[in-house]
Design a protein around this nucleic acid. Sequence first.
DNA 1: TATGAATGAGGCTTCATTCAT
DNA 2: AATGAATGAAGCCTCATTCAT
Lengths: 220, 220, 220, 220
Amino acid sequence: MPKINKSTESARRDPEGVRNDILTTASEVFAESGLSGARVDEIAARTRTSKRMIYYYFGDKDGLYKACLEAAYAKVREGESALDLSGLSPDAALARIVAFTFDHHRQNPDFIRLVMIENIHDAGYLTTSEVIQSQNNTAIEKLSDIIQRGQRLGIFRADLDPVELHWHISALSFFNVSNKPTFSALFGGAIYSEAGQASLRDQAVEMILRYVQNPKGPSR
Amino acid sequence: MPKINKSTESARRDPEGVRNDILTTASEVFAESGLSGARVDEIAARTRTSKRMIYYYFGDKDGLYKACLEAAYAKVREGESALDLSGLSPDAALARIVAFTFDHHRQNPDFIRLVMIENIHDAGYLTTSEVIQSQNNTAIEKLSDIIQRGQRLGIFRADLDPVELHWHISALSFFNVSNKPTFSALFGGAIYSEAGQASLRDQAVEMILRYVQNPKGPSR
Amino acid sequence: MPKINKSTESARRDPEGVRNDILTTASEVFAESGLSGARVDEIAARTRTSKRMIYYYFGDKDGLYKACLEAAYAKVREGESALDLSGLSPDAALARIVAFTFDHHRQNPDFIRLVMIENIHDAGYLTTSEVIQSQNNTAIEKLSDIIQRGQRLGIFRADLDPVELHWHISALSFFNVSNKPTFSALFGGAIYSEAGQASLRDQAVEMILRYVQNPKGPSR
Amino acid sequence: MPKINKSTESARRDPEGVRNDILTTASEVFAESGLSGARVDEIAARTRTSKRMIYYYFGDKDGLYKACLEAAYAKVREGESALDLSGLSPDAALARIVAFTFDHHRQNPDFIRLVMIENIHDAGYLTTSEVIQSQNNTAIEKLSDIIQRGQRLGIFRADLDPVELHWHISALSFFNVSNKPTFSALFGGAIYSEAGQASLRDQAVEMILRYVQNPKGPSR
DNA sequence: TATGAATGAGGCTTCATTCAT
DNA sequence: AATGAATGAAGCCTCATTCAT
């Protein structure tokens, strides 16, 4: 059932609003149908403005898609940045990051879809996007910091790499959303119930924590 | 660089060969471009037969896509079935499964792409496919068996669920292939070098093994 | 008033006929409206086939235009080649060429229009056309031969160049057709009556003949 | 490479300047791309003012084109009027006119392009332009006068018509510019070198002079 | 079983032009 | 006198699919 972003009051002369309206709607449609599958006509129809304005603001369909991708990354990065880990021990902080990432991905399924689409297209747009490339990645920095603290305390193993750790956390969190349709088609939806999701999240947290633990070190 | 499956000898009077030729080629093209993005013309052009034959054998583009999906699942299931775990201890067997799944996914990127596409389409085709639904899932059975054996020996924790465990293994193995383009665009390609992949696989194995371990039990 | 090339009998399954139908019609429309001005829809409408076939045979609008240009040049060259000058004295042959060119251009106004259009586009298509470039130019060869014969007889001046002579003949013949609209708008249509045209043609012939004459030589 | 007529000082409060700026720029763009091919957006972009002003001053694209055409004719007529033939013998005066016309056309290629465009459009705008129609044509008057003087002296043939003579002179001068792209594409650029052009101009002069000469009269 | 020719529907995009300020 | 935002109409082109042989 397509959501329609038309509003009763015609919001004329609000360029920023029009741009955002298009961007929001387009992200939904791209997430639903993919890049080739999305129809400019449908995007326009769900908008409170016209098809012509899409071209006015974004040039062409690819430009619109790229803008959606950039906006999605920006929004997600923003969410990541807001995560406050101050005052937490390394393992508590790491647990927090895993749980947060898991939930955050769940709450942004459109972002996940856009990234899936981008992967189908071999990251062609991401590669050319200066905007995304230039955003400094706070996730890696935070993990790097936690790892160092944990290692200094002797509770984390020595052979940890922040990018690899980020990869593991991302894998568990991303797959949960990206493969929900096929996974539940094949193995039933229990895993995607609220209880099932809570369980998986806890397992993911525990899995990561157990993994980083220093086997010889002063664990609990 | 598009591979062309033309052969010098015209494969006349070989219905099965023609069908397979189309199926193989179509899978490649769908994997490259997505469902909407793939062009029937291009599939035909890369085939050693003609466009008309695609419609003759598969009805329409959707039918062809569904056939590709089914063939891909069948092939992967076949690979999984061939995995011999006899004579292995539960943890050795589990380690074997994780490593195998990780490698198997890497070696079948087109299968991963088709599943990604299917997820973009909310598993609409998978849901209606009697073929795929009917295939009994050996992966779950094998895991189920291993879990039971491990639990009986007291080396595995009690709260393990085969579907959840399969989910974890799949997540780590699937994400590795599905998100390679964006991940390496953002974090560099080191993780996708041979050494990087070997490292990730080992980490995945260890992560799963540590997770299933019974904390109180008689571990090694 | 647009001519419509529809025929009552549907000439299905006649690829060559369809191609020629499109080519003929397109040449007319391009000649009438220019390259940008011509509408693919109008070309299709005047055809006995459909718009889709235009793209099937010619790729795109530019490809169609280029094909029209090539066909026009080919046809005109063909006409030039058919001109038989055997048995004529150099001055008679030259007179024949001038009169022929003048008439030939008049009878092929669409060719003239296409060349005008091509000049507006800085001969961008002509330059890339291998077809046209490769056609050997019989006009220059014929002129070259006549000049040599005339010079050998001492009746033609020594400083004649075939390309320059061709340029003069072309100028008078081409301008007559290309600038008919503006010239008659400014100076009246008398010049474009049958008598007026006959007069201009005779003048052009005489102008060229007087020009090539050797002032010292044995003239008539 | 598009010339941009932007100036550093914003030309506020200079209606005539704005109008001329638009006119100059539009003439260039029309000359480059034709009537349908020219884009209002591009004209505006190359101007130091905005698109809205084009519509403010010229109503619509056609009005702008017509204004360009009128301005071009006015400028060319002005040039022709400035040609001083006083004190020259009829044949010297005629030689002067031919050489001047040849050079003048060469120096005003944009004018030639506009006339070509106008011919493509069957002189539809020229026909309705009261401005152009009302301009008395000094070229014809001058030729008429020269012819009469030459005939009175017995050096010019009796059957000369000023419009026809103008036609011949125009043909040689106009074609030289209008068909430069195609002609040099087909026959090489030698003819359009400085030397080649000088040669053609001399030939044109001689051609016209020889033509008007009275064969029986007291020639040199 | 096989093929080149043909096509209707619908896709993306561009254009000259006008509106509101 | 001037401008950025907005637009309906129409342009070019592509797609999956079918037809006639």
